[in-house]
Design a protein around this nucleic acid. Sequence first.
DNA 1: CTCGCGGAACGAACCACACTGCCCT
DNA 2: TGAGGGCAGTGTGGTTCGTTCCGCG
Length: 415
Amino acid sequence: MGYICDFCGDQPSLVYCRSDAACLCLSCDRNVHSANALSKRHSRTLLCERCNSQPAFVRCAEEKVSLCQNCDWMGHDASTSNSTHKRQTINSYSGCPSSGELSSIWSFFSQPDSAGESACEQELGLMSISENIESTSWDPTVNTISHNSAVVVVVEVNDDCNVDKGSGWTRTSIPEHRPAPQLLDQPAGSTYTSLPKFCPQTKYPGLSEDDLYDDFNIDEVDLNLENYEELFGVTLNHSEELLENGGIDSLFGTKDMSAADSTCQGAVAAEGSSIGLVNAIQPACSNAASADSVMSNKTDSILYFTTKHAHSSLSFSGLTGESSAGDYQDCGASSMLLMGEPPWCPPCTESSIPSATRSDAVMRYKEKKKTRKFEKRVRYASRKARADVRKRVKGRFVKAGDAYDYDPLNQTRSC
DNA sequence: CTCGCGGAACGAACCACACTGCCCT
DNA sequence: TGAGGGCAGTGTGGTTCGTTCCGCG
């Protein structure tokens, strides 16, 4: 949880919904909470800009950041000079307020950019299901993305893997005139300037890698996307959508790929489509130039992700909970843990980390990793329900009525 | 340093059957 | 063009089995 929107898994999260215990971007917040009368009553507030995982409750006027209680306490401790900072209570809201209404709720909440539509609202257009969705036949020859060579690879991968042979499968797409999400190109001073950008090379103030890796569960994203489809009945091959609608920019946070991290860029060129998604999910993948064992873990996960998708589909659903969750949690190697600091602590330079603390943190990380349980995502609850009650012999299902040695319901054995 | 052995760890396979999606009429 | 039937493929969990890895003598 934190930083990346729990719903779309793509955009930076901005608000926190206590009822859903979810971090959401503005567009998903509006989408989710406009679903029905009950969801409209969910109380939301800004997300803490320091830990990116807790609801903010105060706004520091001096630092211009929204903070949760913990981060506020940490940052404005009486022993520090920051204790005199002026802070403003952040009110929660419900319903589906516009950006303008939000800015009326929170005076510090700046209005959307000059285009009159915030990035998230632009994104809302991208994510909106009820409108502007047209179903078109997939024609790989139409795919003309050509931002750079890396993306050309993407196209090739799509051609190879995503074309349903002969079935003429349909897909949803965003109208071509729709501008690509520009969230990541937000000008300074916009609403999102306090949010870290997506570019992998960016250092995120107040954002620990722990937030990104340790607490971030790719499976969660997967599930959310799938729920998205279930909820709205729309087939949304998310990454494809982004790629084909210029969304690659949003994935990388820049239109100029040359500006991207060289490591990341190289990976993109070499690995094709998936890597962009990976980097969107794992913005800090190449950030840690401090690469050590942690970095190797990340690299592994990237390669795994890429390989899997290069041979199958770019779709999120290509990730099985069984494998991806584990792998991604594997990549949850937390530099913050390695640093032996809680995730809400501001990042510090590696050189400042005492080696003893580091080794101690490494040990703790290994312990945590050992005890971590990789949950399997169940795609069909009905099948699970049946399997849960099905009788077995030596673990294998048996025909109804046949003798069994294990009954999940009674924990009894018939023979 | 190499080899063999035992234990631990891990993943694949197996089973029945409801469900899904595609194809054909 | 839509509806309906047929059919092949998929996914679900507990257990077993085979393979790999690691430590020890």
